[in-house]
Amino acid sequence: MAEHKHAQTIRRYFAACNEGDYDKLVSCFTPDAVHYFPAGLPDVPWRSADTIARKWVWCVENLGSQWTIDKILVSHDSDEAVIEWTHWKSKLGTALRGDEWYIFDRDSGLISEIRAFYASPADKNVAINELVDFDYAGRGYHLEPQSRGDQA
């Protein structure tokens, strides 16, 4: 069975990241794509295919970044996928593991949004560890704990 088109796009995106290829990176995204990150990075979220591509090229050139995909799951009934990845930073001698949630544009099949989640310690300087500038309320996320009887 052939790999799902969204999984193919994610693999193409990671190959472009590892090559540090600006044009290939841009070709994976809608022009207005957004890449959300947890607190701690400067200038997040990254807004636009151009910005996302430039930032990853910088990481390859300056950090020796290379990425591996550890798992991919593609939704059977929506234009979404989730992956686990490892970001290897050879010039720093470190690595970071995490997950990303992908939203794909229905018409073009390109990535329109990525939400990154890190498998690392929480930032103790913020009250709520969450993605910077992500519209949790507008997307229907819980904004406070649910009472024991209301948990879903």
Rank of each mutant, 00 (worst) to 15 (best):
D107G: 09
D77Y: 15
D32F: 00
R54Q: 14
Y36D: 07
L41M: 03
K55R: 15
W67F: 13
D23G: 14
E3T: 12
L41G: 07
Q146C: 10
I72D: 09
E84D: 11
A119I: 00
I103C: 08
G20K: 01
D79K: 12
G98K: 05
P121G: 03
I114P: 01
H4E: 12
A16I: 00
T9P: 07
F29L: 03
I111T: 03
G40W: 02
C59N: 09
P121K: 05
G109V: 15
I111Q: 02
T68F: 11
I111Y: 03
V82R: 10
E130H: 08
A7N: 11
F104S: 15
T86Q: 03
A137E: 09
E61R: 08
P38S: 03
F29D: 09
W58H: 10
D32C: 01
A81R: 15
S65G: 04
R97C: 01
H4F: 02
E61D: 15
H35C: 14
G40T: 00
I128N: 12
Q146E: 06
G64M: 10
H35Y: 12
L96Y: 07
D105P: 08
H4P: 12
E144F: 02
H76Y: 15
Q66W: 13
P121F: 03
V74R: 08
I103P: 01
D70Y: 04
A122V: 01
F29Q: 02
N129E: 11
F117Q: 00
R148M: 08
E3C: 10
A127E: 02
S78P: 09
E61K: 09
A119L: 03
I111H: 08
D23T: 13
R47Y: 00
A137R: 10
M1K: 06
E130S: 12
I83A: 11
T68V: 07
F117R: 01
N18T: 02
Y102T: 14
V126M: 12
T86M: 02
E19R: 03
I111D: 05
H87Q: 01
L143G: 09
A152W: 06
G20P: 03
H87S: 03
T86G: 10
D99K: 06
V74Y: 06
D135W: 13
M1F: 04
E61L: 05
D123A: 06
G20D: 05
I128V: 14
V132S: 12
S48V: 02
M1T: 06
S112F: 01
G140L: 00
E113A: 04
K124D: 07
E113W: 00
Y118P: 06
G98Y: 01
E84W: 11
D79A: 15
A16R: 02
L110G: 11
L96I: 08
T30S: 10
I69M: 08
S108F: 05
A33N: 13
D32V: 02
S78D: 14
F14D: 07
T9L: 14
S75Y: 12
D133A: 13
G149M: 08
P45R: 01
I72Y: 00
